[in-house]
Amino acid sequence: MANNNNYWKANISLIVKCLAIWFTVSYLFGIVFVDALNTIRLGGYKLGFWFAQQGSIYTFVILVFYYAKSMGKIDKEFGVEEK
């Protein structure tokens, strides 16, 4: 049981880490700090605008795969993977 509790804690801390990035690229870069980031340019894109319409989406894809891969490792570490 202690093992399962520690497994759950590892999962939660990974989720918190991923959601912090999720929040930063969309809500902070795309909305809250958009005007400040817009003073920087990425080609023809203003950076804040780019995060809101492109960058956040690319980050989401990476996050979901990163989570799936890391959880696979954590499953094995705690010996709770599916047979």
């Binding site: 989720i15 991923c18 959601l19 999720w22 969309s26 795309g30 909305i31 958009v34 605008f49 809101a52 319409q53 956040s56 989406i57 989401f60 996050l63 979901v64 989570y67 799936a68 959880m71």
Partner: peptide, 24 residues
Amino acid sequence: GYGGSVFLMGWTGGYVLLAMLLAP
């Protein structure tokens, strides 16, 4: 314009929540 970004972020970012908080 830029205001339409709510749809782009909103309808993709939900999958992050789904993948980590519900689906498995």
